[in-house]
Design a protein around this nucleic acid. Structure first.
Lengths: 107, 107
DNA sequence: ATAATATATCAAGATATATTGATATTATGA
DNA sequence: TCATAATATCAATATATCTTGATATATTAT
Protein backbone atom coordinates (compact mmCIF):
# COMPACT_ATOMS: atom_id res chain seq x y z
CA UNK A 1 0.00 0.00 0.00
CA UNK A 2 2.69 2.47 1.01
CA UNK A 3 4.72 1.89 -2.12
CA UNK A 4 1.66 2.25 -4.33
CA UNK A 5 0.64 5.46 -2.57
CA UNK A 6 4.19 6.80 -2.94
CA UNK A 7 3.99 6.08 -6.66
CA UNK A 8 0.59 7.68 -7.04
CA UNK A 9 1.39 10.76 -5.00
CA UNK A 10 4.51 11.29 -7.11
CA UNK A 11 2.13 11.68 -10.06
CA UNK A 12 -0.23 13.93 -8.14
CA UNK A 13 1.34 17.27 -9.04
CA UNK A 14 1.33 19.30 -12.23
CA UNK A 15 4.99 20.32 -11.94
CA UNK A 16 6.08 16.70 -11.64
CA UNK A 17 3.98 15.64 -14.63
CA UNK A 18 5.67 18.35 -16.68
CA UNK A 19 9.07 17.24 -15.48
CA UNK A 20 8.34 13.66 -16.48
CA UNK A 21 7.19 14.78 -19.92
CA UNK A 22 10.26 16.97 -20.33
CA UNK A 23 12.73 14.27 -19.33
CA UNK A 24 10.85 11.79 -21.49
CA UNK A 25 11.41 14.10 -24.46
CA UNK A 26 14.96 15.25 -23.82
CA UNK A 27 16.63 12.42 -21.95
CA UNK A 28 18.98 12.91 -19.02
CA UNK A 29 19.25 16.46 -17.73
CA UNK A 30 20.85 18.03 -14.70
CA UNK A 31 18.99 20.15 -12.18
CA UNK A 32 20.54 23.38 -13.43
CA UNK A 33 19.30 22.77 -16.98
CA UNK A 34 15.79 22.07 -15.69
CA UNK A 35 16.02 25.15 -13.50
CA UNK A 36 16.88 27.27 -16.53
CA UNK A 37 14.30 25.65 -18.83
CA UNK A 38 11.41 25.77 -16.38
CA UNK A 39 12.37 29.07 -14.75
CA UNK A 40 12.00 27.55 -11.29
CA UNK A 41 14.23 27.95 -8.30
CA UNK A 42 16.61 25.11 -7.61
CA UNK A 43 15.20 23.92 -4.28
CA UNK A 44 11.78 23.48 -5.78
CA UNK A 45 13.09 21.33 -8.64
CA UNK A 46 15.36 19.34 -6.39
CA UNK A 47 12.44 18.45 -4.15
CA UNK A 48 10.17 17.39 -7.02
CA UNK A 49 12.93 15.32 -8.61
CA UNK A 50 13.48 13.52 -5.32
CA UNK A 51 9.78 12.69 -5.08
CA UNK A 52 9.81 11.34 -8.65
CA UNK A 53 12.94 9.31 -7.91
CA UNK A 54 11.46 7.89 -4.68
CA UNK A 55 8.27 7.15 -6.62
CA UNK A 56 10.29 4.92 -8.96
CA UNK A 57 10.02 7.10 -12.06
CA UNK A 58 13.52 8.56 -12.26
CA UNK A 59 17.12 7.51 -11.89
CA UNK A 60 20.00 9.79 -10.98
CA UNK A 61 23.51 9.61 -12.35
CA UNK A 62 26.03 11.68 -10.53
CA UNK A 63 28.98 13.18 -12.33
CA UNK A 64 31.08 15.53 -10.27
CA UNK A 65 28.74 18.08 -8.79
CA UNK A 66 26.13 17.43 -11.43
CA UNK A 67 23.14 15.16 -10.90
CA UNK A 68 21.60 13.89 -14.11
CA UNK A 69 17.99 12.81 -13.84
CA UNK A 70 16.34 10.60 -16.44
CA UNK A 71 13.35 8.31 -16.82
CA UNK A 72 14.14 5.00 -15.20
CA UNK A 73 14.16 2.03 -17.49
CA UNK A 74 12.52 -0.38 -17.53
CA UNK A 75 9.40 1.00 -15.86
CA UNK A 76 6.88 -1.48 -14.51
CA UNK A 77 3.44 -1.73 -16.08
CA UNK A 78 1.65 0.82 -13.95
CA UNK A 79 4.37 3.45 -14.23
CA UNK A 80 4.81 3.01 -17.98
CA UNK A 81 1.05 3.24 -18.44
CA UNK A 82 1.15 6.47 -16.46
CA UNK A 83 3.93 7.76 -18.71
CA UNK A 84 1.91 6.77 -21.77
CA UNK A 85 -1.01 8.82 -20.42
CA UNK A 86 1.31 11.78 -19.90
CA UNK A 87 2.57 11.49 -23.48
CA UNK A 88 -1.03 11.61 -24.71
CA UNK A 89 -1.70 14.85 -22.86
CA UNK A 90 0.19 16.77 -25.52
CA UNK A 91 1.56 19.22 -22.97
CA UNK A 92 3.18 22.42 -24.07
CA UNK A 93 6.60 22.30 -22.49
CA UNK A 94 9.30 24.96 -22.21
CA UNK A 95 12.23 25.17 -24.61
CA UNK A 96 15.25 23.23 -23.46
CA UNK A 97 17.94 25.63 -22.29
CA UNK A 98 21.15 23.75 -21.75
CA UNK A 99 23.72 25.48 -19.61
CA UNK A 100 25.83 22.50 -18.72
CA UNK A 101 28.17 21.17 -21.35
CA UNK A 102 30.17 18.59 -19.49
CA UNK A 103 32.68 16.94 -21.77
CA UNK A 104 33.75 14.70 -18.94
CA UNK A 105 30.32 13.12 -18.55
CA UNK A 106 28.67 11.44 -21.50
CA UNK A 107 25.14 10.40 -20.70
CA UNK B 1 -3.89 17.47 -17.81
CA UNK B 2 -6.84 18.26 -15.57
CA UNK B 3 -8.57 14.96 -16.27
CA UNK B 4 -5.39 13.02 -15.67
CA UNK B 5 -4.76 14.86 -12.40
CA UNK B 6 -8.36 14.21 -11.33
CA UNK B 7 -7.82 10.51 -12.01
CA UNK B 8 -4.53 10.42 -10.15
CA UNK B 9 -5.72 12.37 -7.15
CA UNK B 10 -8.71 10.03 -6.85
CA UNK B 11 -6.14 7.28 -6.28
CA UNK B 12 -4.12 9.37 -3.87
CA UNK B 13 -5.84 8.37 -0.65
CA UNK B 14 -5.75 5.19 1.40
CA UNK B 15 -9.49 5.20 2.13
CA UNK B 16 -10.33 5.41 -1.57
CA UNK B 17 -7.93 2.60 -2.43
CA UNK B 18 -9.66 0.41 0.16
CA UNK B 19 -13.06 1.36 -1.22
CA UNK B 20 -11.98 0.41 -4.74
CA UNK B 21 -10.67 -2.94 -3.52
CA UNK B 22 -13.85 -3.59 -1.55
CA UNK B 23 -16.18 -2.77 -4.44
CA UNK B 24 -13.95 -4.78 -6.75
CA UNK B 25 -14.44 -7.77 -4.48
CA UNK B 26 -18.12 -7.42 -3.59
CA UNK B 27 -19.71 -5.69 -6.57
CA UNK B 28 -22.31 -2.95 -6.27
CA UNK B 29 -22.94 -1.68 -2.75
CA UNK B 30 -24.89 1.21 -1.33
CA UNK B 31 -23.40 3.87 0.93
CA UNK B 32 -25.08 2.52 4.03
CA UNK B 33 -23.52 -0.93 3.54
CA UNK B 34 -20.09 0.63 3.10
CA UNK B 35 -20.71 2.79 6.14
CA UNK B 36 -21.50 -0.30 8.20
CA UNK B 37 -18.63 -2.38 6.79
CA UNK B 38 -15.95 0.29 7.11
CA UNK B 39 -17.27 1.83 10.31
CA UNK B 40 -17.07 5.30 8.82
CA UNK B 41 -19.56 8.12 9.03
CA UNK B 42 -21.75 8.62 6.01
CA UNK B 43 -20.54 12.07 4.92
CA UNK B 44 -16.97 10.83 4.74
CA UNK B 45 -17.90 7.88 2.52
CA UNK B 46 -20.17 9.95 0.34
CA UNK B 47 -17.37 12.41 -0.34
CA UNK B 48 -14.81 9.71 -1.19
CA UNK B 49 -17.27 7.92 -3.46
CA UNK B 50 -17.94 11.14 -5.32
CA UNK B 51 -14.21 11.66 -5.87
CA UNK B 52 -13.87 8.11 -7.20
CA UNK B 53 -16.86 8.61 -9.47
CA UNK B 54 -15.54 11.93 -10.80
CA UNK B 55 -12.17 10.24 -11.28
CA UNK B 56 -13.83 7.75 -13.64
CA UNK B 57 -13.50 4.69 -11.43
CA UNK B 58 -17.07 4.22 -10.24
CA UNK B 59 -20.58 4.31 -11.56
CA UNK B 60 -23.70 5.00 -9.51
CA UNK B 61 -27.07 3.35 -9.93
CA UNK B 62 -29.91 4.95 -8.07
CA UNK B 63 -32.79 2.92 -6.77
CA UNK B 64 -35.20 4.81 -4.62
CA UNK B 65 -33.20 6.51 -1.92
CA UNK B 66 -30.34 4.08 -2.35
CA UNK B 67 -27.23 4.83 -4.39
CA UNK B 68 -25.36 1.74 -5.50
CA UNK B 69 -21.71 2.29 -6.32
CA UNK B 70 -19.71 -0.17 -8.39
CA UNK B 71 -16.53 -0.32 -10.44
CA UNK B 72 -17.18 1.23 -13.82
CA UNK B 73 -16.80 -1.05 -16.78
CA UNK B 74 -14.97 -0.95 -19.05
CA UNK B 75 -12.11 0.94 -17.45
CA UNK B 76 -9.51 2.47 -19.74
CA UNK B 77 -5.95 1.17 -19.72
CA UNK B 78 -4.54 3.43 -17.04
CA UNK B 79 -7.42 2.93 -14.63
CA UNK B 80 -7.54 -0.81 -15.08
CA UNK B 81 -3.78 -1.00 -14.57
CA UNK B 82 -4.29 0.97 -11.36
CA UNK B 83 -6.97 -1.49 -10.27
CA UNK B 84 -4.67 -4.38 -11.11
CA UNK B 85 -2.03 -2.82 -8.83
CA UNK B 86 -4.59 -2.48 -6.06
CA UNK B 87 -5.55 -6.15 -6.43
CA UNK B 88 -1.89 -7.08 -6.04
CA UNK B 89 -1.60 -5.20 -2.76
CA UNK B 90 -3.42 -8.00 -0.97
CA UNK B 91 -5.17 -5.57 1.34
CA UNK B 92 -6.93 -6.78 4.43
CA UNK B 93 -10.45 -5.47 4.05
CA UNK B 94 -13.34 -5.39 6.50
CA UNK B 95 -16.10 -7.98 6.48
CA UNK B 96 -19.04 -7.09 4.34
CA UNK B 97 -22.00 -6.14 6.51
CA UNK B 98 -25.09 -5.85 4.39
CA UNK B 99 -27.95 -3.91 5.90
CA UNK B 100 -29.87 -3.20 2.75
CA UNK B 101 -31.92 -5.97 1.24
CA UNK B 102 -33.84 -4.29 -1.48
CA UNK B 103 -35.99 -6.76 -3.31
CA UNK B 104 -37.14 -4.02 -5.64
CA UNK B 105 -33.66 -3.36 -6.97
CA UNK B 106 -31.64 -6.18 -8.50
CA UNK B 107 -28.11 -5.08 -9.31
C1' DA C 1 43.35 27.43 0.93
C1' DT C 2 39.79 30.23 -1.30
C1' DA C 3 36.16 31.07 -4.43
C1' DA C 4 32.59 29.59 -7.37
C1' DT C 5 29.20 26.19 -8.85
C1' DA C 6 25.74 22.35 -8.36
C1' DT C 7 22.81 20.12 -5.47
C1' DA C 8 20.29 18.84 -1.22
C1' DT C 9 17.90 19.92 2.94
C1' DC C 10 15.52 22.66 6.40
C1' DA C 11 12.13 26.04 8.48
C1' DA C 12 8.26 29.05 7.77
C1' DG C 13 4.32 30.49 5.50
C1' DA C 14 0.81 29.50 1.85
C1' DT C 15 -2.27 26.37 -0.25
C1' DA C 16 -4.84 22.12 -0.70
C1' DT C 17 -7.13 18.09 1.08
C1' DA C 18 -9.47 15.24 4.72
C1' DT C 19 -12.57 14.67 8.65
C1' DT C 20 -16.35 15.79 11.39
C1' DG C 21 -20.92 17.41 12.67
C1' DA C 22 -24.87 19.82 11.03
C1' DT C 23 -28.14 20.64 7.57
C1' DA C 24 -30.62 19.88 3.08
C1' DT C 25 -32.83 16.84 -0.27
C1' DT C 26 -35.31 13.04 -1.84
C1' DA C 27 -37.95 8.74 -1.42
C1' DT C 28 -40.69 5.49 1.24
C1' DG C 29 -44.20 4.04 4.49
C1' DA C 30 -47.58 4.78 8.24
C1' DT D 1 -49.42 14.75 5.82
C1' DC D 2 -45.85 13.30 8.94
C1' DA D 3 -42.05 10.50 10.27
C1' DT D 4 -38.20 7.88 8.93
C1' DA D 5 -34.27 6.52 6.18
C1' DA D 6 -30.57 7.16 2.59
C1' DT D 7 -27.71 10.27 0.55
C1' DA D 8 -25.45 14.70 -0.57
C1' DT D 9 -23.50 19.02 0.64
C1' DC D 10 -21.70 22.70 3.58
C1' DA D 11 -18.81 25.02 7.23
C1' DA D 12 -15.18 24.56 10.46
C1' DT D 13 -11.17 22.40 11.92
C1' DA D 14 -7.23 19.31 11.37
C1' DT D 15 -3.71 17.52 8.53
C1' DA D 16 -0.77 17.22 4.58
C1' DT D 17 1.69 19.19 0.71
C1' DC D 18 3.91 22.95 -1.93
C1' DT D 19 6.80 27.07 -2.40
C1' DT D 20 10.26 30.06 -0.99
C1' DG D 21 14.54 31.68 0.98
C1' DA D 22 18.36 30.37 3.74
C1' DT D 23 21.82 27.21 4.80
C1' DA D 24 24.74 23.00 4.29
C1' DT D 25 27.60 19.79 1.55
C1' DA D 26 30.49 18.53 -2.10
C1' DT D 27 33.22 19.26 -6.25
C1' DT D 28 36.02 21.92 -9.33
C1' DA D 29 39.09 25.75 -10.60
C1' DT D 30 42.31 29.42 -9.34
Amino acid sequence: MDVFLETVSALNDETRIRLLAFLDTHGALCVCDLQESFGMIQSRLSRHLKILKDGGFLRVDRCGTWAYYSIRSPLDRFRSEALAEIRCLGLELPQLIKLSQNEGCSL
